[in-house]
Structure formats: C-alpha cells, structure tokens
Design a protein around this nucleic acid. Structure first.
Length: 487
RNA sequence: GCCGCGUUCGUCUAGAGGCCUAGGACGUCGCCCUCUCACGGCGGUAACACGGGUUCAAAUCCCGUACGCGGUACCA
C-alpha cells in the first residue's frame, strides 16, 4: 500500500514555522517512500477563519519546496482525486458520519447551554458517563421531546458516547506503546451547534476518506488519540499509523508562541523568515534537524538528501529548543554554496534599494567577492562602495589608520596604478608593495589607508580582490579623491 | 487537580549493556593563517536530572522522585 500523508493546517493565520516543520516531515516521509503528500485545509472554525491564510500556507509551502502532490495548489484537475480538500466543502461526509453514529447509539444529541457547561466545569466535572445522565441531552429526554426541540431549531451539538472502563492501546511510530483509559476521555463534541464538525470528527472522517496511511502531526495531538481511536472504531474504520512529533520550544522553554519567540528575536511565521532573508534551503535543513537526525555527523542536507536519509523511527521524543544562531550559520553555509547569480538575484532588492539599478554581471561579481562574509544575501547591500564611490570615510578607521603622509602615499599609489597596463589583483598588490619599499614604509602604513581610500571602511574582502572588482579607473579616482579630501 | 509525553554539554544531537576517561555541530574562549573583516585550520570550555534496583558490567534495562512540556473547549 503506497504511503499517503497529509498536512492539515487550519487557516487561522500565517503559517507557523512549527507547522512548516510538520509539513516537512510529512513530505520527507512521502518522498522517502514514494508516497503522496496531501494538503487539506481544516476550515471548520468559522470564528477563527482568516481569508488570506490559505494563500499564505500555499505560498509558504511552495517557497520551502514543499508544494503538495494533492490538494489545493497541487495543479491536479479539481485539485485531486479526493476533492474537495477544504473541510468546509465536505460537510455532507461529516453529517453522514454523525448520522450513523447517532443511529447506532454511539453518539447523542445535547442541548446544554454554555452556562450549564461552565457550571459543570466549575464543579470540577467533565461531560462523561458519570455526568451525562444529569445533563440536557437525548439520553435524558424522551425521544419525542428531543425530536421536537431539534425540529424547533433549538441549538444542539452531537457528542460521542464514550464507554468508560476501557483501555485503548496505541503504537506510536515515534513514542512506541502508549495506553489510555477511556475514563479520562470526555464525551467529545463531534458536531458543533453551527452544524460544522469539530476537528476530531472531520479529521477522522477525512483521513479515512482520503486513504491516509500515516498521520504525522505535533505532539499536542497525542492526548486526542483515544478520541480518534474511539471514532475509527465507532465508524468501522481502520485507524492509520500515527507519529507524534516533538514540539518546537522557545529558547526560554515554553512553546514557541508569537510572544515568546518575538521576545527572543525569533520569527514565528514562515513569511517572516522569508522577509528576513532566510534561504528556504537553510530553513528546511535547520527544521529537519530539529528533532531528527540520521545518526551521522552530517549537518548539511538538501531537501532531496533529507528525503533520502529520512526515517520516522529516528525522530526524537523530546521537544527541541529553537536555536537562531544555528539557523544563521546554516543560512551562511547555504549561501556560500549557491551560484553567484543566485545570491545576486536574492540580494538585488536590498542592493537596489540602497544604490539604485545594478547590472546582473556586476551584482554577481560582487556576490562572488563577498560570499564568505554574508549571513544573508541582502547583507551585500551593507557594502555600497562596491557600486559607487564612498561618500564618507569611517571615523574610527581614519583615526587609527590615516597618518600624516597617508594622503601623499595614496596619491603616489594612484599614479602607479594609473600607469599600469595590466591592472589585476597581482599587479595592484605588487605596486603597493613596491611603493612601500620605495618610501621605506611598512606595508601596513600603506595598505590600511588604501582600503579606507578605496572603500571608505576598514572591513571587507581582500583589498586587491576588491580593487580588481572595482577596476583600474575607479581605484585611481577613489585614491586621488581621498588624497585630496583627507590631506 | 487529573491524563499523557519527556529528561546526555548553554543549544541541536550521537549513543539502542562492555567500543564512553561520553563523540559531532552551533555558540563561546584561545592560538594559527592574514592588508582588515570574514572564511578556514588547530585547541580549550562544557552534559548522562536525582535515588534505588537488575547485571560481572548501565548514559543505555526496571521502579520511584524531581523537574519540564502538552492536553484537559461547541479551537485546531
């Protein structure tokens, strides 16, 4: 049986980075086994529904290279063989399932008001076998009365009739054997008073209908397993295999909530990572290693390599704290392996915002020159001297490196470069060394002022490599300008 | 409270009874390279939560405790 996995987010806001990891692990399992990755939109909560969320989820998945094989955005006719993929469009399925449960006496209708429910919780009670007999539902009401109230349009929900005293075993792909007592499971609401199903019902019905073989989701769902097991059983369906992933934690230890994360400077939504300039390959690499590793010392992987090496058995059990430093390192590493043209195009918006239009070849050459110094592609924009003459000179650098006869020396260097027939990294350096020797000066007393004169700053790529990039004319001009301005 | 899950360096982790005086990576510190800043190289720092068992032998198995996390909604 071919593997079929799904990512089933709720469109309630921007896709969370934790959600992206869940999607990633699903994709890795699918790719590793030649299976299918399904995207299903779980939009059954009208109150929290956000219009743009679905588009953001899709954009984010695509950006990360995790486009679904089936479902919205898959490009399949009607989005795929199990259409529709939005739960709000699949309500007949849930209604039928609820009907069957009701008819079989495995579920019942309840009319309790929110106030009555609050009062119950107040008493420390749960809606269960022990208490349902005292509540306002079809089990305590005469059948005719129940039918009358439903007919009169009275608000009601459908609850699962959980039988106490049973032990439910679950063999989790990540956690191994887990057992639950049904005594601890409340009579779950399956259909809300607005007629829409809750997560539990819709999820079980759809995973079965879409022939999902492996449910890979966050650990926060582990306590829901008994509810789902009961539902599969009641509906006469075979439950899928399940894997509950460890949670991604904030550095402070709690869950990576918006507040928690932003306090530590950690982006929460995938969109934020994108906007901050992270490479999707780096984020994917990082997320994959947050809770999984293949048992080797390897740190760098492409998505394809991850899919090759992946196995659910090697997923960790404990939650993992988010480490921004490591992500940044991975981003820099990823950048360094990218073709100069790719770095250039990713840096273009930031560079052009700083210095105006730049030709592709120049930008690529600049990216090549600076690649080992970049954490983000847009860091290239922090060196505007690569694209135009410096407008100012670093104060501290000047104070430390610019001496009384620096201006004279730089003018001499400019003359030497001007006279050069073959301007290159080698000749530019040879001329400066020759100048130092002729003047009886140390190399340091000429090279530092030269860097300031040419770039305006004290840090950057190798000076002569930078000069070769800038070209003979620009270097001569910059040296003379500095010699004049700083005399 | 109750239910469930978890616990190896600051962080991500290797480790599936002897290979562990616990390995790698990020971070951090030092040194080297060097025209600066990086990169790179070398080296240092730093961990088996605690207590009982089992065993010739336990980071690895069992029990308990502590701590952390999750769940306990007509949210997912």
């Amino acid at each position: 049986m071919p593997t079929r996995v799904r990512f089933a987010p709720s469109p309630t806001g921007l896709l969370h980075v934790g959600g992206l990891r869940t999607a990633l692990y699903n994709v890795l399992l699918a790719r590793n086994t030649g299976g299918t990755f399904v995207l299903r939109i779980e939009d059954t909560d009208q109150a929290r529904f956000v219009e743009e969320a679905e588009a953001d989820i899709l954009d984010s998945l695509r950006w990360a290279g995790l486009a679904p094989d089936e479902g919205p955005g898959s490009g399949l006719p009607g989005d795929g063989p199990h259409a529709p993929y939005r739960q709000s469009e699949r309500t007949p399925l849930y209604d039928a399932a609820a009907r069957r449960l009701l008819d079989a006496g495995l579920a019942y209708v309840a009319f309790d008001t929110p106030e009555a429910l609050d009062a119950m919780r107040e008493r420390g009670e749960a809606y269960s076998a022990a208490t349902r007999g005292a509540m306002d539902n079809s089990l305590t009401l005469p059948a005719a009365e129940t039918a009358r109230r439903i007919g009169a349009g009275e608000a009601h929900v459908v609850r699962l009739k959980v039988e106490p005293g049973r032990t439910l075993g679950h063999d989790d792909l990540v956690r191994g054997a887990v057992a639950f007592q049904t005594d601890g499971v409340d009579d779950q609401v399956l259909v809300k008073s607005d007629g829409l199903p809750t997560y539990h019902l819709a999820n079980v019905v759809d995973d079965a209908a879409m022939e999902i073989t492996h449910v890979v989701r966050g650990e926060e769902w582990l306590p829901s397993v008994p509810k789902h097991l009961l539902l599969y059983e009641a509906l006469g369906l075979a439950p899928p295999r399940m894997a509950h992933l460890p949670l991604i934690l904030a550095p402070s230890g709690g869950k990576l909530s918006k507040r928690n994360a932003e306090k530590m400077g950690i982006p929460v939504s995938v969109r934020q990572y994108r906007e901050a300039g992270y490479e999707p390959e780096a984020l994917v690499n990082f997320l994959a290693l947050l809770g999984w590793n293949d048992g080797t010392d390897r740190e760098r992987y492409t998505l394809a390599e991850l899919a090759e090496a992946f196995s659910v058995e090697r997923i960790h059990k404990a939650g993992a704290k988010f480490d921004l430093d490591k992500l940044n390192w991975l981003n820099a590493q990823t950048l360094r392996d990218l073709p100069a043209e790719s770095i250039a195009e990713r840096a273009r918006p930031a560079v052009e915002a700083a210095v105006g239009p730049v030709e592709p070849e120049r930008l690529a050459a600049a990216a090549d020159l600076m690649r080992e110094r970049l954490v983000f592609a847009h860091d290239l924009a922090a060196s505007p001297y690569l694209f135009h003459d410096p407008e100012a000179y670093d104060e501290a650098g000047l104070k430390k490196r610019w001496k009384d006869d620096s201006a004279r020396l730089m003018a001499l260097y400019a003359d030497r470069l001007d006279a050069l027939d073959a301007f290159s990294v080698e000749t530019a350096e040879a001329e400066l060394r020759a100048l130092a020797e002729a003047e009886g000066a140390g190399f340091g007393t000429v090279v530092h002022p030269a860097r300031i004169a040419v770039t305006g700053v004290t840090v950057g790529a190798g000076l002569f490599e930078t000069m070769a990039f800038l070209g003979q004319e620009a270097c001569v001009r910059r040296l003379r300008r500095a010699a004049d301005a700083l005399d």
